[in-house]
Design a protein around this nucleic acid. Structure first.
Lengths: 324, 324
DNA sequence: TTGTACGCGTTATCAC
DNA sequence: GTGATAACGCGTACAA
């Protein structure tokens, strides 16, 4: 392994100078810079992020947590239960390990920071453009924008949905439906794809209904579904809230869960395990998302040319009483 | 930040003992273990991977690079050009930074190692099951298996395809076709999804043809396409080899590229820039895949309960002469 | 402008 | 069974 010391020796300077050249700080004469870069290239030296990060621990970076008003309100009204809190807690805890300080701000009017974490689905192409112009590293948390090649951390909805659907199929069920939110949301789209993919692979016909979260038209959706397709053997819902509303409507019509219809949700929100019946679901690791975000933003802050990636966390199937 | 020293002080032992307890090595009395765990929990201490990794550099891990015969033959016959070489080079270089040693072996009959990297698309559920039973960390490189929740590193075909298709649309083209390999391959499927997604969003009708890589039936595909849909304005191919074969067939029929038809490939294989005309394509960062694989397998080796994730690298659009 | 020396948090070696 | 301490590779006060 070639270290900074090897480079220093080869260039005939001290390790301090090499470090200064690499990180482009302090005053180094052009002549010395040339010598150092030459040595670096000849030895094919790559700085070790690990050691660098450790040594930089004294450095304090300020990272902006950027949220839209809409998201904050959803938090407040418990539509997106505990999401924000859990993420932020993990983010701050792991961030501390890297010497990160966090600072909340509005997504659309960020204040000066060393880096930014853009939370939730309200980040558009235009917003990304704005952050690009700030010239600081940033990443999307729980969101992805096709074609923009911007670093992001998301939950792998496809995989979870595929697993849940396959599970129901393996249990011998055939008439498995999917009720989902708007498919322009990346999260819902992935789950939809996972469901249809599993169904098609098993030679089954996917059947799905769109549900409007805001209007809460579950009554109509269920009514329509029952009239048109008779009773399904199972429904995979694109989140826990939706699953709970489905169960409520089924109960109203005296349809037994899970005896007549199995229901599976997505998220594992806190109330899922105390619901009646307790909800079978796919657990989303919000704390892991937070800690991954902290790790990633740190890499972007101190790493030399980091390639943009999408990191998607797998979910965990939690078997409870709402499904066979 | 709470360090190992804080824990040691609280438990009334040395840092060495705390380290021994955490990593479960050496001889520590049960009584001391209890004291240490108690202190760890009370302080909510989390070991710092960074420092741990740095200190462990002296340790040498042996990592198996597992490939199927099929893949090795494809390498040899240049069907998957330079893939193996580029990946392995980056893997070894970055791996060295972490004290990793690599050892090539057959995917289906691995020998004893500390961890494994399973290369390419021949890894099935059954193979995964076999590696799980080995009880060692492993990850898939350039492959993903739905529902298995196994760590993997892939290229984000969806994003690249979406970008390329959107690019053609923005240039004013409407009749954009897609010629793809078998969709049971994760890579081809993602690109297919990205293409159709971009087309649908623009209100255009996706049109695609499957091409059989092994039979090399490009002549038939092009013939069929031309007869049925007349001439497209552009074709997005699911890889460079396919793109080159398309161009060859079009040339044979005196159709000009890019004047009459724009062609975009995927991969940016070495020969892409010397092809006539040079190929517009989406560059896959093989070296980055290798280095990410090294980093990730190291995290799996030394990290405490690492959550499984899929890391997908964004591609880069390379504009050359085969497209407008 | 450059070099010396210390510290980042953890693990491993060697005493006891 | 346990403790003191020297590494690991790099960044940066401070000195020169």
């Amino acid at each position: 392994m070639v270290t900074i010391e090897d480079v220093a020796k080869k260039a005939g300077v001290s390790t301090a100078t090499v470090s200064r050249v690499i990180n482009n700080v302090g005053n180094v004469s052009e002549k010395t810079k040339m010598k150092v870069w030459k040595a670096i290239n000849e030895l094919n030296y790559k700085p070790k992020i690990l050691a660098s990060a450790l040594a930089r621990h004294r450095e304090r970076f300020l990272v902006g947590i950027c949220e839209s008003e809409r998201l904050k309100n959803m938090e407040k009204e418990k539509i997106v239960p505990e999401f924000y809190t859990v993420i932020l807690t993990a983010l701050e805890q792991i961030g501390e390990e890297y010497g990160l300080k966090f600072c909340k701000m509005n997504l659309f009017s960020p204040t000066e920071c060393d880096a930014y974490i853009l939370v939730g689905g309200d980040t558009t192409k235009e917003v990304v453009e704005m952050y690009r112009e700030l010239g600081k590293p940033f990443l999307l948390l729980d969101h992805y924008i096709p074609g923009e090649k911007v670093d992001c951390i998301v939950t792998n909805g496809f995989d979870g949905a595929y697993y849940a659907t396959s599970y129901l199929i393996k249990k011998g069920l055939r008439k498995i439906f999917h009720i989902h939110g708007p498919l322009n949301s990346y999260g819902f789209k992935g789950r939809y794809d996972g469901y249809t993919s599993a169904m098609k692979e098993a030679g089954l016909l996917p059947k799905y209904y769109e549900y409007d979260d805001v209007k809460n038209n579950m009554d109509d959706v269920i009514e329509f579904m029952l009239r048109k397709n008779d009773i399904p053997e199972a429904i995979f819902a694109s989140n826990d809230i939706t699953a709970m509303r489905i169960i409520k409507e089924l109960k109203k019509r005296n349809i037994k869960v899970p005896d007549e219809v199995s229901i599976i949700g997505f998220d594992d929100i806190i109330s899922a395990k105390d619901f009646e019946p307790s909800l079978t679901t796919l657990k989303v690791f919000k704390d892991e998302m937070g800690s991954l975000a902290a790790t990633r933003i740190y890499e972007l802050l101190v790493g030399h040319n980091v390639h943009p990636v999408m990191v998607s966390l797998f979910t965990k199937f939690i078997k409870r009483k709402s499904s066979i």
